[in-house]
Amino acid sequence: MNLTLKIWRQQDANSKGAMHTYEVSDISEHMSFLEMLDVLNEGLVAKGESPVAFDHDCREGICGMCSLYINGEPHGPDRAITTCQLHMRKFKDGETIHIEPWRAKAFPVIKDLTVDRSSFDRIIQAGGYVSVNTSGNTQDANAIPIPKADADNAFDAATCIGCGACVAACKNASAMLFVSAKVSQLALLPQGQVERKDRVMNMVDQMDKEGFGNCTNTGACSIECPKEISLDNIARMNREFLIASVLPE
């Protein structure tokens, strides 16, 4: 199929960007979206032009590196997948596709469609861990049974890939879904109890410092999240936050 692409081009963080129009032809419907962009780039390089920069690595929906706001939605129109798993069969011949980077003050553009998501790392650094040193003497893994439901819920929260689509989707550029997923995972497990209160306070604090917006419960994050992280986690984080504020250590 043949497509018209409208793509955000921006040389670097300090330059001004703009949308540019490109045509691609002979795209197979079995291609992934990124393979379609590979074809575009191959063409651009052949013409001596600079290829479109976009982040990607695993190309199987797990590393969280790929991004792209495609036709007005992060990771494109399909649900529960990342951009690298999106296939061209979701588009029609002759269609115009708009491709933009994630837009948020806390995710500055590096080049074209690549953004800097290190704010997410800093939030995890503020408390998204259990403080346990490596040693051969931690207690046996089966010493504390964990109710299956808790283990499963913790796992579901832990599947967040840190892609940032939740922020990109949110009209407020809020990072609540991402932060709450980590807070929930550790709040649900016995191992996370000791630091439970400090964790939520510190992570929320860092989230605010990074300049993400406030959640207004629109729910767009969860719908667009490739891992379908649930809004339950945000509610749980709010509870954790309340308990930690009202009953501090």
């Binding site: 007005g72 917006g213 629109t218 667009e224």
Partner: peptide, 28 residues
């Protein structure tokens, strides 16, 4: 205040956006 903060959290807006795909008009 929240609205102003939230607007500031996205300094440059999308040129093409389809928010209705994931949230209600009321909520936005």
């Amino acid at each position: 205040v929240l609205e102003l903060q939230n607007r500031a959290a996205r300094d440059l807006n999308y040129s093409y956006s389809n928010p209705a795909a994931s949230s209600t008009w009321m909520s936005r």
